[in-house]
């Protein structure tokens, strides 16, 4: 017994180190697994507060560019709107008939990383603004990521520039779909994998979200094909996608809630259970 106690006293530094190291590894592994309640995120009172203080100052330096982006988006939406109202045969009088499946909320990015292999953003909306895990986040120019942790007033977003991220995407022209991933090399280029060999792939073609998940609406812009690679004997293309978004310069974003998500997931689970 005495021996054991002596052992502990003699090696107390090593044991303390081992204990803390194992805890850190646990946190690390937990952050590598996709869906899990994490303890260590920047969506909390302290970090969120400091980041929003920082962004309230640095915001002013990028105002002009951000305004330009929003104006561009307004222009695009106006054009679509005018096309729509020209083509509409019967005008929708009551907004309750406009039962869109998706609800959009605005948010501001208060922290953004893009230089690591696993990047996250922090936004200034949280549970109190009805943001919850697994909602999609887009910017005026295209897709950004998926909410992966929330606190009262803040949420963190798993960026598409993260090796854990995998988003269903398709070619706009031909409907062939694959998965959007990132190989950590360039913050403006993502990879689209598993596009079947039959698909007509042309450099410059647009890639949009696939709508097979409950997270993003179909047809949200992602980017254009920059380069493609078909390995010998492989049935699938690997495409390099030049993103529309400048992921290094984000401020105003929209969080998308799919109002039917629960219903769809419930149905799918029920089908899985039967099998």
């Amino acid at each position: 017994m005495q021996q054991i106690i002596y052992f502990f006293i003699r090696n107390k530094n090593f044991l303390l180190f081992l204990f803390l190291f194992v805890i850190s590894l646990f946190f690390t592994i937990q952050s590598h697994t996709y869906h899990s309640g994490k303890f260590v995120t920047s969506a909390n009172f302290l970090t969120g507060g400091i980041y929003s203080f920082e962004s309230s100052i640095s915001e002013y330096f990028g105002l002009e560019k951000q305004n330009l982006k929003l104006v561009e988006e307004n222009k695009r939406l106006r054009t679509q709107l005018s096309l729509l109202s020209e083509n509409a045969t019967a005008k929708v009088e009551d907004s309750s008939f406009l039962n869109s499946r998706f609800r959009f909320r605005t948010a501001k990015v208060i922290n953004n990383t893009y230089s690591k292999s696993k990047n996250y953003l922090t936004i200034n909306r949280g549970k109190r603004d009805s943001i919850s895990i697994d909602m999609g986040v887009i910017s005026p120019k295209g897709i950004i990521g998926i909410v992966n942790a929330t606190s009262g007033n803040y949420a963190t977003v798993l960026s598409i520039l993260n090796t854990e991220s995998q988003i269903n995407a398709r070619l706009k022209k031909s409907n062939h779909f694959g998965s959007l991933v990132w190989n950590t090399e360039d913050p403006n280029v993502a990879q689209l994998i598993d596009i079947p060999r039959l698909a007509p792939v042309v450099i410059g073609d647009t890639v949009v979200t696939g709508g097979r998940s409950t997270i993003f609406p179909e047809g949200v812009l992602i980017g254009t094909i920059k380069d493609y690679n078909l390995e010998e004997g492989s049935n699938y293309y690997d495409l390099d996608i030049e993103l529309f978004n400048d992921m290094t310069n984000l401020r105003h974003v929209y969080v998308i809630e799919n109002l039917d998500a629960d219903e769809i997931l419930e149905l799918e689970n029920a089908v899985d259970d039967v099998e």
Binding site: S24, T28, Y120, T122
Partner: peptide
Amino acid sequence: MFMDSGGVHAA
């Protein structure tokens, strides 16, 4: 916590 990196800095 600030960098959302799990526990890599702590380790």
